[in-house]
Amino acid sequence: MANEMALSVGADPKVFQSYLDMQSKFPSYSVNNALLVLKQMPQATQLGDLSYWKNQKNYIRRNELNNKVLILEPGDEYRREDGSVGTYINAKKVYDISQSKNTRHRETPLNDINSLIMALANSSPVGFKSITPEQMPQGYAVMYDKNSDKIYLRNGLDDATKVFQLTTMEIAHAMMAKDNPHYDRNENHLTAYASSYMLCKQYGVNTDDFIFEVSPQSETNEPQDIKKELAKIKNIANDISNRMEPTLVQNRSTKEKSYER
């Protein structure tokens, strides 16, 4: 099922976007598992096995028990004939919150756009520099420059949503360009674009401006090659998110304390 969905992602930009939506809802899931959920239950929003829901003091409705979603998780290790160590893969049954008795979602912390931008600035692997519109290459409002290893921002850019969208994209370029003297931003545009989209979806930033007209391609059109491209997108988005989280947690804690006073 995962291979079938990977081929669909590579063939149809709309399916690719649906995959990004799913992966952004479950950022800790592997590419394989995001593809499996997309295939079996594209409307899923919160998944867990029976013990997970029991711990949440919630239970899956009896008539839904046969409508499980299968994902993969590592099992026990074993030793191959050549002496190397492998890991068994087990199928795991999970269920969506929509199949439970209590369908009320857990509350997720909200971050205002200014807090998100501050977290980006604090966690960026490269520095920023403001320049005049005349100095900025035509067509760009934010741009990573490999030669100076800086992200340049055009003065007067006051649309916070656009700043977040473009800055996450350029940080993605900066990460991919690191230690790569032959980095080509055009060849990696889709990866940076999709990583930014995933982060916007994850943090509730408007994504109406994103338009997907192409999908990740591979010369061989093999599912594994497409999955590698999807993993690259996921890993970059997760890396940026993990860098942002300490600042966001601190901001939320400060706000909570101010409300208590």
Rank of each mutant, 00 (worst) to 15 (best):
N180A: 01
S195A: 15
D208M: 07
Q202L: 06
N122M: 10
M5A: 10
N221I: 05
D112Y: 03
D159W: 08
P216W: 12
M1F: 07
E213P: 00
G127K: 13
L35I: 04
A91G: 13
T103P: 07
L50W: 10
L248R: 05
N147V: 11
T45N: 12
M176A: 00
M198A: 08
P216M: 11
S253I: 09
M41Y: 13
S130Y: 13
M176C: 00
G86W: 09
Q46P: 02
V37K: 05
L38F: 11
P137T: 14
Y193E: 01
N186Q: 14
K227E: 15
N32S: 09
S18W: 04
A192Q: 03
S130Q: 12
T167R: 02
S51H: 08
E256V: 14
S258C: 04
N188G: 00
S84A: 08
H189Q: 04
H105S: 07
L157C: 05
W53M: 03
K101N: 13
M198D: 04
M1Q: 05
K234S: 13
D76I: 02
N155I: 08
A192L: 07
P125A: 15
I236M: 00
P125E: 11
S30Y: 02
D184W: 12
S30C: 05
L199C: 01
D239A: 07
K255W: 12
Q99D: 07
N235F: 01
K92N: 03
K93R: 12
D225R: 05
Q224P: 02
R243H: 07
V85D: 00
A172N: 11
Q46N: 09
R261D: 06
K178I: 00
T247N: 03
K54L: 05
S84H: 05
K14A: 14
I131Y: 12
Q99P: 03
M41F: 15
T168K: 05
A177I: 01
N32I: 11
N221C: 09
E187V: 01
G75C: 07
D158K: 07
I60W: 02
G127Y: 02
R62Y: 11
A174Q: 01
A172W: 13
N238F: 03
K54C: 02
I236L: 00
A177P: 00
F212W: 06
V249M: 15
I240A: 09
S196K: 06
T220I: 05
V31D: 03
A2D: 13
T132N: 07
G156N: 09
Q224T: 06
V214G: 01
C200M: 15
E229Q: 15
V163A: 10
V31R: 01
E77M: 02
H105L: 12
M143I: 10
E64P: 00
I131D: 03
K101V: 14
D112S: 04
N114Q: 04
V163Q: 09
K255V: 15
N122T: 02
V9F: 10
I117E: 05
V15A: 06
V37I: 15
E77S: 12
Y78M: 02
Y52Q: 02
T45A: 10
Q40F: 08
S100F: 07
V214K: 15
Q23P: 03
